[in-house]
Structure formats: C-alpha cells, structure tokens
Amino acid sequence: MKVLVLGGTGVISSQISQQLLDAGHEVTIFNRGSKSLPQAERYEWLVGSKSEPEAFRTLMSGRSFDVVIDMISFTEQDARLTVDTFRGSAVQLIFCSTGAAYKRPFRTTPVREDDELLFDDPGFPYAYEKAQMELYLNGLSQEDGPAVTIIRPSLTYGIGAANLGVLRQNYNIVHRIRNGLPLVMFGDGKLPWSFTFAPDLAKAFVGAVGNERTYGQAYHATSEENRIWDDLYLEFGRILGIEPNIVHLPTELLMKVDPGMFAHLHYEKSYAGLFDNSKAKRDIPNFQVTISLNEGLRMMLNWYESEGHTVDADKMRLEDRLAAIHADWSRTMGSFGAQ
C-alpha cells in the first residue's frame, strides 16, 4: 500500500516508518527536513510544515495515498487540516492521540477504551486538546471522507526520546545512580504503570494500515508488564548494579515548584496506568507487546552511551534542590517524633 507518514522521524514514528518498509509498503514521509532515517533512499521525502496550511495543501495536491498516518496533529484544528487535505485522496487516516486523553479518574481498571470518557479539563492543555481532536474525529461521517482510526499511546520511550524520568531528566538518571545522588519520585512510587517502548507501539499503527476492522475505532496499545513507578529507577539500578537512592515527594509540592514541568504528574500520572489491550489484539493481527522494562531500559542505556550523552545541568540543579527539600522535610518530621 501507499502510506504517507506525517512526521515519520520521531521517537514513535521512526519505528512506524521502518516497520512499514519491513511489511512491504511504499512509504512517503512528510517532515520539516531536519531529520532523516537509516535507509533514507527507500522513502519518498516531502519537506514542509503543517503550520503553513496553504503550502501543505499545495504540496499534497494531486497526490493520493491508501493510508495517511498523522503523528503531528495535537488539536482539533490540526486534525481538520489533515481531514480536509486528504478528503478524496486517501482511504484511511490513522491519528496518533494519547492515553492522557482519557478522563481521570478512570471508570475501568485495567482501562477499556469504549468504557471511558474523554478528558475535559483545560488546565492540562495537551490532554484537553487531544480530547477535543478526538471529539471532532468521532463526529465525522464515515461515508463522507476517509475512514478514521485513532491510536492512543500511553507513556512511550525509545531511541530519541527526551521524556524518561519524573523530571524527564533522561541520561541524568544514569549519572545520578552511578554517583549515589538521590532521584526524585512523585507520590509514594507505588502506583501501577505501563512503561511502553516505541518498537512495540509501532506494531499497532502498522497493523491498522488498510485494516477495515479498525475503521471508526480507537485503541490504546501499551505494555502489559506489571510494574510500579519506582520500578523505573529500580530497574535502571539493577542494570547498572547499583541500588538507586529514591526520595519521594508529594505531587502537590512538585506542582508548586514548576506547574509546567509537573502538570503531567498531577493530571495524568497520579492514577494507575493499566490498560486492557484486548480490543487491539482482537482487531489488529499480530499485535503483541514483547519488550520488557529491563530490555527497554538497556536499549536506552546503550543509546545514551553510544551517542555520548551528557548531563542536563539545569535539571541536575533542580533535582538536587528537590532532594534537599526532602532531606529538610525528613529532618523536620523526625524532630516531631523526638519530642
């Protein structure tokens, strides 16, 4: 099939692009031209930006695709541009949404797609705008334009990712464990969570391509390994052979320190993140999540070290300050017990 990937070179979409090639599809990638991929000659490349709607429409004019996978729509307006541009020139549109688009608290645990409501609090714009995008897509007539499939990743890591850790401190995690420095965890670290890696998630997108069972449907696709948040740091420690020093701070306190950085913890990750993949397994052939947290973190560590990653000094200072707050707090609380 002829497949266009809008994005195509990001953490998730690069894996989608590669797996599409492996499955024998003819793949075109649209991006800003700042990133490429291995075996770049096997793709057709279109350079541009969706932030320039008229130029985007002009570039796509006269082209047709069996499937368009949109990894770069974050709002209803973004999705409208994709739908309007490919109405009449694509059979199926696959949109990347997010597990954050589910309203919290969940109605079901593990979460089942069709039993949940969508996020409705503008206080967390990322989740709210993705939910508004989905509401628009859900309102489209399947008879009037391409069929729509929605896939909702939960927190996903992979080569190129910059979202690993509570502070999204990435390589700093490795550095801090190796040097005996404390790592900040939100809450008590005991909430269950699904840590998913991009090569597994990509299987859901590729398996939905041209798959009529997925038309008009939404799916999440996540790890099913039974893990808690502390395991993110504990597993890194096992790989490195060093027990990490984890300190726990209330989410409310972290929000006061930096609402922009920690809003995702407050709105999304303060609830158990366990997802039922039954629907995806039913409709998407060969969808199976196989990468464990240990295997995935080894992949990340190899990438950090092969690419020569260095510490983020600003986040080092912030985590040091937060750890000092925890130490002061612990001393203060301890003094009450001594009285």
Rank of each mutant, 00 (worst) to 15 (best):
M1R: 06
K2T: 04
T9E: 02
I16A: 00
S17Y: 09
Q18W: 08
L20Q: 12
D22C: 14
A23L: 10
G24I: 13
H25I: 09
E26Q: 12
E26H: 10
F30R: 06
R32T: 06
Q39N: 15
Q39Y: 14
Y43F: 12
E44L: 06
W45V: 00
G48T: 03
S49I: 00
A55C: 01
R57M: 01
S61V: 00
R63T: 02
R63K: 10
F65V: 10
S73V: 14
Q77Y: 09
L81N: 04
V83S: 09
L93C: 05
I94V: 04
G99D: 05
F106V: 01
T108H: 05
T109M: 10
E113N: 14
D114S: 11
L118S: 01
L118M: 01
P122T: 08
Y126K: 04
E129R: 13
Y136L: 12
L137P: 15
L137F: 03
L137M: 08
G139A: 06
E143A: 05
E143C: 00
E143P: 03
T149W: 00
R152P: 07
R152A: 02
L155C: 12
Y157P: 14
G160M: 07
A161Q: 07
A162D: 05
V166G: 14
Y171E: 08
V174R: 14
V174P: 00
R176V: 01
N179T: 14
P182L: 10
M185F: 10
M185S: 11
G187C: 04
G189I: 02
L191V: 03
W193F: 05
D200L: 10
L201D: 02
L201T: 09
L201S: 05
L201H: 03
L201K: 09
A202T: 13
K203M: 07
A204C: 12
F205C: 15
A208K: 09
E212A: 09
R213A: 10
Y215M: 06
G216T: 04
G216R: 00
A218T: 08
Y219K: 08
H220P: 09
A221H: 00
T222Y: 03
E224T: 14
E225R: 08
R227A: 11
D231L: 13
I239V: 11
G241L: 03
I242W: 15
P244G: 09
I246C: 04
I246F: 05
V247P: 15
L249S: 12
P250W: 14
L254Y: 11
D258N: 06
D258I: 01
H264A: 12
H266N: 02
Y267T: 03
E268Q: 14
S270P: 09
F275G: 03
S278K: 02
K279R: 14
P285F: 04
N286K: 06
S292H: 08
M300N: 12
L301H: 15
G308I: 11
H309K: 08
T310P: 08
D312Y: 00
D312E: 02
R321V: 06
H326V: 06
S330G: 10
T332V: 13
T332M: 15
M333R: 10
S335W: 08
S335Q: 13
A338T: 10
A338F: 04
